[in-house]
Design a protein around this nucleic acid. Sequence first.
DNA 1: GCATCATGTCAACCGCTATTTACATTGCCG
DNA 2: CGGCAATGTAAATAGCGGTTGACATGATGC
Lengths: 197, 197
Amino acid sequence: MLPDPALPRRRDATQTRARILSAARRVFATRDYTQARISDIAAAADVNQALVIRYFGSKEHLFETALDSVLDELPSHGRYELDGLAQSIVRHLTDDSGNMPDPLPMVIHATSDPVAQAISQRLMQERVVRPLAAWLGGEDGDARAVQMLALCAGFFTYRHLLPVAPFLGDMHGGARAWLISSLQTILDGSARAAATK
Amino acid sequence: MLPDPALPRRRDATQTRARILSAARRVFATRDYTQARISDIAAAADVNQALVIRYFGSKEHLFETALDSVLDELPSHGRYELDGLAQSIVRHLTDDSGNMPDPLPMVIHATSDPVAQAISQRLMQERVVRPLAAWLGGEDGDARAVQMLALCAGFFTYRHLLPVAPFLGDMHGGARAWLISSLQTILDGSARAAATK
DNA sequence: GCATCATGTCAACCGCTATTTACATTGCCG
DNA sequence: CGGCAATGTAAATAGCGGTTGACATGATGC
């Protein structure tokens, strides 16, 4: 038996903060940053709107904290072989349950706001592009890293932001396969470059 | 000798409307839709802010008119051979002068606003995806069409929206070459599919 | 010239939303 | 218990930006 929902919840700052952060991650990943209202996040966290600001200072800082927490949960590249990485990326990208950490939705949705954009840019550069480029190796490592990100961003754009047919219907499988093989091509190129070193 | 800028310009509704539309195209292509202020457009057109609304009814309607006018200027696909199309697309995409019509910047920047997004979605579907798919031909024509658009969107995202290194520096040439060859691969696939019909 | 309509200007208005402020309630510790 | 700091709530506040309306000014036909 659940507790009476009319009754106020037992007060617990840590848990409340966590609920807000979790809600922020969901909301910032699904709506555009400027469309993501503080009240949306408060509602999703079942918390008073003023608490969101009280706990995180401002919308911008909440965004930074939320993106940071997603990046913390991202599995490190070292855990993947060349074969698995492409599929793993796409699995994160196409997971709609919200259980798999993926910075891309938040980052893409943040491009509308100058401040949130700057935050995303810095964090993505430091914590995704740089390590991925290093892991890919070679002198064109970071070129390849950004190519992979661009592929993912394009896929995401036409899946969620501008869902023109045939991305709407049952074509997801085909698009997914195309994305995997395109990523794999870039990875294979890296492998070949490394082998000829 | 130019006319005294302190003096009011000779009144001409057609010209004023054209100046507003042109300014709107520039502004909507460079800033995000929600960040693109009516006052920005008015200033760029050197026109009173109220006139923008007077002539176009609302920000949303101005956006639709502006996007429509860009699509009108787009060269039809029939004018290109398979070889030239990829390069032509990329030339439009990487032109910073604003002289070449390209709906992509406006469309991408419109994704933050639900209404502008819906407008973009409809127009892109009808006037870009559909004709491009028909031109590509084959049963997977529209899948390939969207793949090409996704590539362009990804490229644009990491060039303008989330400019992480090495897209910032001198790597543009490399990224450009990559984009052209990726597009060409999709086009070649279409050609092969058509040949084996 | 002058009447009149088209065009342009200026100053409000209005809704929206992040943030703040003042106030209530809970839980903890003596 | 009783006080007090931590936590939660509700209602302003403030600023921004699209839109509107009342008024000014230039152009055009008589």
